[in-house]
Design a binder for these strands. Structure first.
Length: 879
RNA sequence: GCGGGCGUGGCGGAAUUGGUAGACGCGCGGGAUUUAGGUUCCCGUGACGAAAGUCGUGGGGGUUCGAGCCCCUCCGCCCGCACCA
């Protein structure tokens, strides 16, 4: 009977409708089964999905479908990270309201996502721009404010002159705004900050507990938090040399052992003491201004010389009152790290050495490398930062670095007794508090009111949410909320007097720092979370998204969850038990001779032999095939998922996204690859049809005995099942795909054998094994190609849905063979094989091996020196 | 500069974690079916060699009966951080 082609366009829509109508992916919170929460990073509603989304959501969907089949109550929701700049840009460029633009985009993308056949619970859909969502965010802001996790600070901030907004440190990349790409400027502004630094140590320590996170991400966060241990040392200043008689200067150092190598002190250009000194020193003031103008861009920092200005101030060495040290202002000292001041030990720090060599201050080595003579050891232009013994350091001489550090700390602390401390041990972090104020319209309003009389007054909870006004204009730069004629004018909740609303909105990373907790019960109106539910579902068992969020989103979410715990909204610290970061989707680039990029859809590729060449479809001109790069609008090397789904169906797109490359690595999208996936999907359909013909002959009852052919098929079935199950658990989707191919090939071979057998009918035992095999096959590819799987499942005569079928059980007994074929090595090279009983003993195996012709030949009558036998693995004969 | 990762056929990649290197796919070559093909099926495909065989996981060295995997060293590519005291 001829089997018709599988038509994805027809079948996919049909099955999606059935899933939808039966509501099979709607998750019930009161379902008593064990819970499993799988989540992909929710998208920004840009208007269209891209291949990266297809890859991301397909991976999550495979996990969700498999876990569901395994009997878990699976939560697999979707939502929208809906606030942000692009909506305002659209408003400025196209005169559409950000809200309308955003919701239109959501509608369009939702339709696209639905066409992918994802097993999502859409009843929990969230958009962060919905007041029903951000109302709770405002409530939590006020909670955090109350417990001191939110503060208002005058801060030097990163100002993006293009977007006209403030950026967090994490959002500045190579001195440029992460979104606009504009060079960032430094400005002093009043800012709302989240006190993430209160959790520095905890966020660092807990990284060790995240054993299902990629090592790389944990390391990046560790470096970002940047813990260092050192000593806070208070140097005395000669008050005669300071502008207002200041008498001390505090520095942070991780190398107190090098104190006797000190040659200078250096202040950050914006250090208060530097500013004070500049008041009556015009040249210094000029130097400081010049420092501030040096950009923060990478190449500028690399090229910038170590520059300094001698203030004339003198510091006193803490161990020698007669030892005076000059105080400089230097361009390489950062005000926001440590105390904004250092002591410089040039012999053992390259920057300090460059500095003294420029200003002729000299150096004294105080650590001598083990292989050097202390009397002759000198430093010229390379600082020594290795291990060694202390020299030229009075009471420290001969000590190790560690001993010297300890001794310096001990002596200085002792001196401090009764007085202000001269030194304190101190742990310092690189992590800064998270500034969340943004001078933007399309974000969550910060729920506070500024009153001239009462100061900062929180908006009373009964007045939440503070909603965004819709009648705003985008005809000039800056914050539309500031320009709004009436919105900001309110009565002070405390005194009733005229007051002004905060017009800054929150960084959109706040919105995405708790959406996963909201998904556990998005219906509750009285609180951000329903405690029993959020505690039952959290943490997310498997979170999947791009590596680009390794620091920003993932660190903020870890902080936010802790802050929510502190204010009673959740009961845990770590939101994501398992994290997987997937690679990018990349594509060849095409370039015309005039330098313009051509899109894949505009190019025709031909190959003769190994050579491939490209021409432009419209003009026939030759096109240069360029590097394989991340799909991007600027290089025009994108492929639209919509086009692929229309042409090949969602299953083919999903299958291809999982094939070939390991999920954490980049995957190259190629036309050849998609066609391979297409051919395989059609092949599966035919194969299932043919197998179904044989399976029809199967007896209802499981036969007692299986002949060799049937047994062989059953073994192949359970081996495939075991491997695929295993590799899905490890998220090795590309290996799953390979195993499914292999199993399909095996099945194909068996069908071929039956068919060639003069057309006789398959024996009942083989028919039964075939029915088992084909059912397992369909279940195995169901998570990847769910529509085709439903179509096949129905063709096999089931009146249930494969999406609701329980995962098949592996029969362990079928995984072990009665006999094993052992490779036989002679001196480590494979020379022969020996087939023995699986449980054969060493003596038996050795006898069998020594009887082999190849072994006899190699031994040439002599006894082997040694025979190594690894049962069920390998034999090695040492001649 | 600091930290991390990677290097396997023409290509993407497998390899039970020290035990038959190259599974599976793509590409390529050959054959069959077809009026036709984004068709299907079969065979071959690491290199050298007529064959027996020899070589082979970036280069060199080591440990081991046995190394893609462990150790040392060198080379190359990629990613993250970056004047952090």
């Amino acid at each position: 009977m001829p089997i018709e082609r599988y038509n994805p366009a027809d079948a996919e829509a049909r099955w999606q409708k059935i899933w939808d109508q039966r509501g099979i992916f709607t998750t019930k919170n009161d379902d008593p089964r064990k819970k499993y929460y799988v989540l992909e990073m929710f998208p920004y509603p840009s208007g269209r999905i891209h291949m990266g989304h297809v890859r991301n959501y397909t991976m999550g969907d495979v996990v969700a479908r498999v876990k569901r089949a395994m009997g878990f109550n699976v939560l697999h929701p979707m939502g929208w990270d809906a606030f942000g700049m692009p909506a305002e840009n659209a408003a400025m460029e196209r005169k559409v309201h950000p809200k309308a633009w955003t919701y239109d985009n959501i509608a369009a993308m939702k339709k696209q996502l639905k066409s992918m056949g994802l097993s999502l619970d859409w009843s929990r859909e969230i958009a962060t721009c919905d007041p029903a969502y951000y109302k709770h965010q405002q409530k939590m802001f006020l909670d955090f404010l109350r417990v001191g996790l939110v503060e208002r600070e005058k801060r030097k901030v990163n100002w993006d002159p293009v977007d006209q907004t403030v950026l967090a440190n994490e959002q500045v990349i190579d001195g440029r705004g992460w979104r606009s790409g504009a060079l960032v400027e430094q400005r002093e502004m009043n800012q709302w900050v989240f006190k993430i630094t209160k959790y520095s140590q905890e966020l660092l320590d807990a990284l060790d507990t995240l054993d299902r996170w990629p090592e790389k991400v944990r390391l990046m966060q560790k470096n970002w938090i940047g813990r260092s241990e050192g000593l806070l040392v208070r140097f005395a200043l000669d008050p005669k040399t300071t502008p207002n008689g200041e008498s001390e200067l505090e520095v942070f150092t991780t190398r107190p052992d090098t104190l006797f190598g000190a040659k200078f002190m250096a202040l950050a250009p914006d250090h208060p003491l530097a500013s004070a000194a500049a008041k009556n020193n015009a040249a210094l003031a000029e130097f400081i201004t010049a420092c501030k103008h040096t950009g923060t861009a990478q190449e500028l920092i690399d090229k910038a010389d170590k520059l300094g200005f001698d203030t004339g101030m003198k510091a006193v060495h803490p161990f020698d009152p007669s030892w005076k040290i000059p105080v400089y202002v230097a361009n390489f000292i950062l005000m926001d790290y440590g105390t904004g001041a250092i002591f410089g030990c040039p012999a053992h720090d390259q920057r300090d050495l460059d500095f003294v060599n420029k200003y002729g201050l000299g150096n004294t080595p105080v650590v001598c490398p083990p292989d050097q003579d202390p009397k002759r050891f000198v430093i010229t232009d390379t600082a020594y930062d290795g291990d060694g013994r202390m020299i030229n350091s009075r009471f420290l001489d001969g000590m190790s670095i560690a001993q010297a550090k300890e001794e310096v700390a001990r002596r200085l602390e002792e001196e401090s007794r009764g007085n202000r401390p001269v030194a304190q041990r101190r742990v310092n972090f690189r992590l800064r508090d998270w500034g969340i104020s943004r001078q933007r319209y399309w974000g969550c309003p910060i729920p506070v009111i500024h009153c001239a009389k009462c100061g900062v007054v929180p908006v009373p909870e009964k007045d939440l949410p503070v909603t965004l006004p819709e009648d705003v204009t985008f005809d000039r730069p800056g914050n539309p909320l500031d320009h709004h004629p009436t919105w900001k004018n309110v009565a002070c909740p405390q005194c009733g007097g005229a007051a002004r609303r905060e017009t800054d909105t929150m960084d959109t990373f706040v919105d995405s720092s708790w959406y996963f907790e909201r998904f556990t019960d998005p219906w509750i109106t009285t609180a951000p979370t329903d405690r029993p539910m959020v505690d039952a579902w959290m943490p997310v068992n498997q979170y999947i998204g791009g590596i680009e969020h390794a620091i920003l989103h993932l660190l903020y979410s870890r902080f936010f969850t802790r802050a929510m715990k502190a204010t009673g909204h959740v009961g845990l610290e770590e939101p994501f038990a398992g994290l997987f970061t997937q690679g990018m989707v990349v594509h060849e680039t095409y370039r015309r001779s005039n330098g313009e990029w051509a899109a894949p859809a505009e190019v025709k590729i031909e190959s003769n032999g190994d050579a491939r060449h490209a021409t432009l479809l419209t003009t026939g001109e030759a096109i240069a095939i360029g590097a394989i790069e991340k799909m991007s609008k600027s290089k025009r090397n994108t492929v639209d998922p919509d086009d692929i789904i229309k042409e090949y169906g969602a299953d083919v797109a999903r299958w291809f996204m999982l094939s070939d490359s390991p999920p954490e690595r980049d995957v190259e999208w190629t036309e050849r690859g998609v066609q391979g996936a297409w051919r395989f999907s059609q092949r599966l359909w035919r194969l299932v049809g043919e197998a179904a013909e044989i399976a029809k002959l199967a007896p209802a009852e499981r036969p007692d005995q299986f002949g060799p052919a049937a047994l062989g098929l059953r073994k192949a079935t359970h081996r495939a099942l075991n491997r695929v199950t295993d590799d899905i658990e490890k998220l090795h989707f590309n290996v799953c795909v390979a195993h499914i191919y292999e199993f399909a090939n095996t099945l194909n071979g068996v069908i071929g054998d039956v068919g060639s057998d003069g057309g006789t009918e398959a024996a009942p035992d083989l028919a039964w094994a075939m029915r088992e095999a084909v059912n397992v096959l369909v279940q195995l590819f169901h998570p990847m190609m769910p529509h085709l799987a439903e179509e096949c499942w129905a063709a096999l005569g089931h009146d249930t849905l494969v999406a609701q079928a329980p995962w098949p059980q592996v029969e362990r007994a079928l995984l072990v063979e009665d006999t094993v074929t052992l490779p036989v090595q002679i001196n480590g090279k494979k020379r022969a094989e020996a087939t023995v009983a699986r449980n054969a003993g060493s003596a038996e195996i050795e006898a069998a091996v020594l009887a082999l012709d190849a072994v006899k030949k190699a031994l040439d009558g002599k006894a082997p020196k040694k025979v190594i036998i690894v049962p069920q693995r390998i034999v090695n004969v040492v001649a």
